[in-house]
Nucleic acid binder design. Structure first.
Lengths: 245, 245
DNA sequence: CATGTATAATTGGTCGTGCCAAAGGAAAGC
DNA sequence: GCTTTCCTTTGGCACGACCAATTATACATG
């Protein structure tokens, strides 16, 4: 008899246990965890199994491990979505059109809010991003400055959820960068950014919203060119061969 | 000499390889992967190491494994964010206030859009959610119906990014459900939902937006009661002891 | 005493092997 | 043709061993 009811997956159960332990306050962000060998003993599983669970948490950014030192719970869980997002994009569940459409929803509202309650610090970050973009000479630098401007908009919201949404957008854009780097896309974003900044500076929410909406609408229309598909096929590093050590 | 440059973490490298393989089209969503033993051989790593990487991907929902069968790349990557979100919430990087504030940004706009372009199917889902909520007798059922209404709003957008945002909200709310289940919170949500439905039915975007904003503003104000902290401390399953098998 | 150095212990990283149980498929029997 | 039985494949897990990085300790040196 004895319904074993074995869900099998020990790793999943270990993760659940970790959730409980974090929830109960046994593990506090930033604290040091017991060594693997002892943790495995306490959980009653083999070290290999425990390591799988730890690896999952590590790759999600929930904890970090250093040889000879130990395992620490991350103090900042902001990167938890990095890896998942990467795969989400790669598996094609998000198109660029949808991404920009979603950005319109969020960032338009955030631009409006920023016009209402942006601090001096926020304004400075926006100004800085614009200057960096003007001074940028490479595509890489330009995109970074572009993202920095939008990040400043998110930052102004003071909402950590919005900050997370930005990290998602950030990763997504970096992954499909090749499609977004269009030759003519140098001037428009900058002028839009300047107009948005002006609206925020003037404390004009509706104008800030309108400019942001148009900005993203414009950007979305620019990546509609159909030469996107092949760009990712020809990239290097497709080796199924041995990992580089 | 020979800078080994060993980043150490094989798992991270394996994940990178998987990204490349997915990106290159070698691994297609839904396809069957080679068995672990052979995959490990091809990558030039031990099976244990490979399994760690596979476990990470499995727990992220990128792939699924079944004993005796094999490993399959997930066809639907919608659940990639489930586990990460859980830890994000647990590690306290998101407060309920911020969550509802973010919801206001997204859902208000979505309600407006729904009023413009909701299909028959969308309307039916909304109506269904309202009916279920009216008929709900347990807190559990009521919350499910509540979320179903909002999911229908997200669904109406037809944007997969928005769908992801909903899954995030869904998980977050389920995790901190105890705080949201306030005794008096039975009637208000329902009447708001009805008002929102009416506005969408009347094709009145601004009214739909307004009602949704007020709905979430109201909901946010209701969870401000300070008895929230203790509720999570007393829950069971905090065992650091052996896993249940 | 202070300081640097060699040594040992701790800890995560990887590998290898062996065995189990679940699922699938092939062969035998009806 | 269908069911049953057996074997192969495949993932799940457990031990064990060794390595390398880090830290802590003891020791030698000035």
């Amino acid at each position: 008899m004895r319904r074993r009811e074995t869900t099998g997956d020990i790793t999943a159960k270990l993760l659940a246990s970790f959730k409980s332990l974090i929830s109960a306050g046994t593990f506090v962000p930033g604290c040091k965890l017991p060594p693997e060998r002892e943790l495995a003993r306490q959980f009653g599983v083999n070290r290999s199994s425990l390591r799988q669970a730890l690896k999952v948490l590590q790759l999600m950014g929930v904890l970090s491990q250093r040889v000879g030192d130990g395992t620490y719970l991350s103090a900042d869980a902001a990167n938890v979505l990095r890896e998942p997002i990467d795969f989400l994009i790669l598996m094609g569940d998000i198109s660029d059109e949808e991404l920009f459409d979603a950005r319109m929803i969020v960032e338009s509202e955030l631009a409006s809010r920023a016009a209402e309650r942006a601090t001096m610090h926020d304004m400075k970050a926006l100004r800085r991003a614009i200057e960096d973009m003007e001074a940028s000479r490479s595509d890489q630098a330009r995109i970074e400055a572009d993202l920095a401007f939008h990040e400043a908009i998110f930052q102004a919201s003071g909402n950590r959820v919005c900050r997370l949404i930005f990290t998602v957008i950030h990763r997504a854009i970096l992954l499909s960068m090749s499609k977004i780097v269009t030759r003519a896309a140098v001037k428009q974003p900058l002028s839009y950014h300047q107009a948005i900044y002006q609206a925020i500076h003037d404390r004009n929410p509706s104008e800030a919203r309108r400019q942001m909406t148009e900005h993203l609408l414009d950007a979305k229309s620019m990546l509609a060119s159909p030469r996107a598909a092949q760009s990712r096929a020809g990239r290097s590093g497709i080796r199924i061969g041995p990992i580089s050590r």
